[in-house]
Each structure stands twice: as C-alpha cells, then as structure tokens.
Computed example of a mutant assay.
Amino acid sequence: MRVLVLWADDTSPNLGVRALAEGTAGLVRSVWPDAVVEFQNYGSRTAPARVGSPRVLLDDWVTRRHGLRGWARSFDLVVDTRSGDSFAEIYGLDRLVAMSALGEFVHRSGVPLVLGPQTIGPFRTRRGELIARRSMRTAAQVMTRDGSSADCAEELGRRVDVRTTDVVFALPTPPRTGGRDVVLNVSGLLWNGSPHVDPRAYRAVVRELYAGLQARDRRVTLLAHVLDGPSPDNDIAAVRAFAAEVGGDVEVVVPGSLAEVRGVVAGADLVLGSRMHACLNALSVGTPAIPLSYSRKFEPLLADLGWTAQVDLRSSATPAQDALALLDRAPALAPQVCDLRARAAAMLEPAAAALRALR
C-alpha cells in the first residue's frame, strides 16, 4: 500500500505542519500498518515537477513531459491535508486554486483522493465556493475536524463522510516528565503583522500576559513553534526579540523536531499558545493549554473536544486578563485533559474505519 500525503511533510519548519504529516501517517498506518507513506508539500517534494503550479499541471496533462501522471498513479491512495486550514480563502484565492488543481489532477489520474481531517471554509467569493464544491464532489471521502466545517461543506452541497478531530491525537505520547511551569508560545505570524490580528495589539497582549505571570511568580519558558525557513512566518525572531525585551534569565526553547516540542510541552504544567498546534500538541500529551485564537479554525475544533479554556484575540476586549483568569483555575483544567484525550481517540476511530472501507 502506497499512500501520498499532500500539503504536509515531516521536515517543515512549521511544527504544526509536521504534526499534520506525522499524524496523518499515523492514521493511515492504524489501518495499513505496512503502508509506505510519502509526503508532498511546498518546498519538499517527491514529484518530478512543481505541483504547486496549475500551469505546470495543465502542461503535463497535455504533454506528459514531466511524468506527473505516472507519479500520481504510483500511489494507491492520496490524502489531501490542505495544510490543515488552507481549504479556505483566508490565505488568498491563489493558494486555494493551486492546492485544488493538484487534487483535480490526482482525481483525473484515477487515484482515490481523500480530503483528510481539516478545517473547511470560510469561502468569501463565488469562485472560491465553486472550487470548493468541485474539490469535495470529486473526493472519494471528505473528513472534517470540527462541526462548523461540516456545516460549511453541507451548505456547499456535500455532506461530509466523517466528522472527526485533528490527527495530532494519532501521534504517540511521550512520557510526562515535569520540570517546566508555564510555556508561552509567541507567534511570529501575529507579532510581525497579519490579516488576522493587529500586531501592536498582539504584542501588548503578550507583554501583559508575561507581566501577569511574573506577578503570580510563575516560571516562564518562551517557545518557538514555527522555525526558520524560506517563509518570514516563523516564531524564532519574535521569541528572541521578546526575550531580549523582558531581559532576565527567561528560558527560550527552539526545538529541532516535532518529538522535541512534544517532549517540551509534556514537561510543562500549562501551555499558553498562539499557534493552534502548540496547544494541540500540549493537549494531546496531557498538558492543559490555553489557546489565544485568531481564526475560525480554533474554537469549533476545541469545542467539539469539550475544551472551552480559550481566548479569542479578535473578540475579547481584555484577552490577557481573560487568559490569566483561566490560568488561575488551571488545577481544575488538568482532569479535563484526560476526558478530552479519550474523546479525541473515540473521534478518530470513524476516520480509520472510513479509510478501511476504501480498500
């Protein structure tokens, strides 16, 4: 069994994308233990030509000069992750078009394609909606990781085959070692400016959070969850800039692998994070986490898991104070993590069963 996982890989600078890759591989191998899994993402490729270009895909379909059709047909199944949250227009229409074009190419090559557990929507334009409808109509299966995505898919004419949860819960769990108190993940995406949250407001929230933690005599570790790479969207510069600003002996952790970051959060008492997978990594290993959310992908997924300890940076008038209030009742959150993990395991079972039904 040869399986291709699209738009995630195990070497990405974004450790959330690595979690998607390795979690999807884990889900696949729960069905086919001996499956050979390959990854195809931007900047990481097994394909003989650039698959992120609709023009290249069209040229190859007509001329066959690149060998992409033969490459696609070398797989028994393709699982399209869309980087977890890119089956939407939040990153622009061009990204949606490019990813959907590859899915269409796989479909026309006669290879079953599954839209793996992910966020679906929002779509803001008529063209975006039409592309989404086509992508879901040609998929052998459509899986979502939250109820709002399932509703969005149904509004566009496709009832999802599986409503599940994030594949991070398919990863092995490291031992809980202890040794750290509060791990604070600072997002370079939000620190430097994005369409989601005003960077000045975000920086003010981080500063207020840190001051509140110090006032509570909590030991803080600053964590980068997106590492250096071709994209300016990384956490390292933001984390180091903030560490220099606050001074002292604050610990800064720049992990070298997904396993390392999971070990770091497994050794913490609590995680405060602006990267969703920094928080999901924590919850999946048994550590309470308070997400500082900035898009629709956070709340519905966590709500389906029964986790309400989160703060929306877009709507909260006092996000730092709200997060600190949740932190103050962290002892009550710890038992809830066990329930969440059990719920997540149960929610992944239908996804595995759906894959099994394909063969």
Score class of each variant (00 low, 15 high):
W71D: 09
A323D: 10
S83I: 01
A237N: 06
I290G: 10
D34W: 06
T125M: 06
S315V: 09
D339M: 05
G26S: 11
G193Y: 12
L326T: 04
D151M: 14
R137C: 06
S53F: 04
D59Y: 02
G84W: 02
L189I: 14
T46E: 11
R218A: 10
L222S: 11
A278I: 00
R55K: 05
Q336I: 06
D10Q: 10
G193F: 13
G121F: 10
V264S: 00
S149G: 07
P33W: 05
P331E: 06
V337E: 00
T144V: 15
V220H: 05
D304R: 12
A140C: 10
A309V: 01
D328C: 05
T46L: 09
S109G: 04
V226G: 04
S109T: 01
L4Q: 06
A351N: 08
A170V: 07
V205I: 14
I290S: 11
Q321L: 04
G121Y: 09
R275D: 05
P33T: 04
I290C: 14
L302A: 08
V261T: 07
S231M: 04
F75V: 01
R145L: 06
L348R: 11
G147Y: 08
T138W: 14
D217N: 12
L324V: 04
L113Q: 10
P232M: 08
G128W: 04
A241G: 13
A266P: 00
L213A: 03
H66C: 13
P122Y: 09
L96H: 00
D339R: 14
D146E: 14
R126I: 02
Y91M: 03
H107T: 15
V246D: 03
P255M: 10
S315Q: 10
L283H: 03
L15P: 12
S44E: 07
A19F: 00
S315Y: 07
R314T: 01
A98G: 07
D249S: 12
R262N: 00
K297L: 06
R45C: 06
F123K: 02
S293R: 07
C279W: 01
V162M: 01
A354K: 08
A204S: 15
R127D: 02
Y210M: 06
G147F: 08
A244G: 11
H107P: 13
A201Y: 15
L270K: 13
A241W: 12
Y202S: 13
S284G: 05
V97R: 15
L313G: 02
W61V: 03
I236E: 13
R65P: 04
E245P: 02
V264R: 00
T81S: 10
Y294H: 11
W307V: 03
A244P: 01
A153C: 04
D322L: 07
L4C: 12
A170E: 11
A357L: 06
L77P: 02
F105N: 07
D304E: 14
D233K: 06
L190G: 09
G116I: 01
V271R: 00
R219D: 11
G157N: 02
N14G: 04
V56G: 10
P175I: 01
A357C: 05
G273I: 12
S30M: 02
G52D: 12
T287G: 00
P112M: 04
G256V: 13
